[in-house]
């Protein structure tokens, strides 16, 4: 299955037409796919809290938005999630590469990985962890759930889900 294509298909099917991204190696393919889709306006941001501001504005402008980022960005965006996205009750699917999990080659990534779920839990952010390729089947339901409840929702996608790092 082409995960990048499936993620974009589900975004489009759920009327998501505004996507901001900050790259991660694991997300390179999906970011490229987002960029190529005519139905999606792709705006790279320089920092993830900035991206969440763009998404909040787009949402109030009548467009469903989403952010694609690395889990390290949870450390960057707590204030924005609490005082903007959650305080004003706005939906925000967060497609997150879950670095520092099984099959991770870079040791430093583990340092934020061990805090990721605890922080999301502390923030009462509904969190889904994709470990197997088949977990993508849930994505469409997660998007519907996000726009039903008007909350930020985290989808953590680990290295195993993306098929590992090859020879690295």
């Amino acid at each position: 299955m082409n995960l990048d294509k499936k993620i974009c298909d589900d975004l489009v099917a759920n009327d998501v037409s505004f996507v901001t991204t900050v790259p991660c190696k694991q997300l390179a393919g999906v970011i490229e796919e987002v960029d190529q889709r005519d139905e999606i306006f792709h705006i790279p941001s320089n920092k993830e809290d900035e991206g969440m501001g763009l998404c909040a504005g787009a949402f109030m402008g009548g467009r469903r938005s989403a952010i694609i980022m690395q889990n390290t960005a949870i450390g960057v965006t707590i204030n924005t999630l609490a005082t903007l996205t959650q305080y004003y009750r706005m939906p925000l699917p967060m497609i997150i590469s879950y670095r520092g999990e099984l099959r991770e080659p870079v040791a430093c990534q583990v340092e934020m990985a061990v805090h990721t779920k605890a922080l999301l839990n502390q923030m009462n952010i509904p969190t889904y962890h994709f470990h197997w390729q088949k977990d993508i089947e849930e994505f469409d339901n997660i998007l519907k759930y996000t726009f039903m409840c008007n909350k930020p929702v985290a989808i953590l996608t680990d290295a195993n889900f993306w098929g590992g790092y090859g020879d690295q």
């Binding site: 505004f18 900035e50 501001g53 763009l54 909040a56 504005g57 109030m60 402008g61 903007l84």
Partner: peptide, 22 residues
């Protein structure tokens, strides 16, 4: 008027996202 009650720094980003969306 959209009043920001928190989130110092994001007025430009929120406004810009809104301008792009409509």
């Amino acid at each position: 008027n959209f009043y920001m009650l928190g989130t110092m720094g994001l007025s430009s980003s929120i406004g810009f996202g809104l301008a792009l969306a409509q």
